[in-house]
């Protein structure tokens, strides 16, 4: 889990997913409340037509302080010749990526692979 410090009075938040592999990459973004249980917002998308894909969060940044962002990636190799995955996930504010940057990478298994990244907004 990565801790992300956001500027409560800064620009709008967005989540970016960028595929760096010859894979079909889809993703879901779940915004969990500070209890880690309640799903406040849920989005899905993919990077097949637009890469990177950005998902804007509609509320003011201060609204999300203490919340968790759970990103699930689903990966599939359309040709069967790609041995590994490499995907960048960023939490952005005002168009700039907030540190730390997260890179999901590893070996591809058969079928649909799933990978999870969790961020805690502070």
């Amino acid at each position: 889990m990565s801790n992300i410090s956001i500027n409560q009075t800064g620009g709008a938040l967005s989540i970016g997913v960028q595929s760096n592999s010859l894979l079909v990459v889809s993703f879901s973004i779940s915004i969990y409340g500070s209890d880690g249980t309640t799903v406040l917002e849920f989005y899905t998308g993919d990077t097949t037509k637009v890469n990177p894909a950005y998902t804007s969060l509609p509320q003011a940044p201060s609204t999300y302080v203490g919340d968790y962002v759970a990103v699930t990636l689903t990966l599939f190799d359309p040709s069967g010749g790609t041995p590994s995955y490499n995907v960048d996930i960023t939490i952005n504010q005002g168009g700039a990526a907030l540190p730390p940057a997260t890179n999901a990478n590893g070996a591809m298994g058969p079928g649909i692979n799933t990978v999870h990244s969790i961020f805690h907004l502070q």
């Binding site: 889809s26 993703f27 879901s28 899905t44 993919d46 699930t72 599939f76 359309p78 649909i112």
Partner: peptide
């Protein structure tokens, strides 16, 4: 590719 994306989204919704 569209069929793969559909299958992936189905997994994501099922996971939720």
């Amino acid at each position: 590719i569209a069929q793969v994306v559909d299958a992936e989204h189905a997994v994501l919704l099922a996971e939720k």
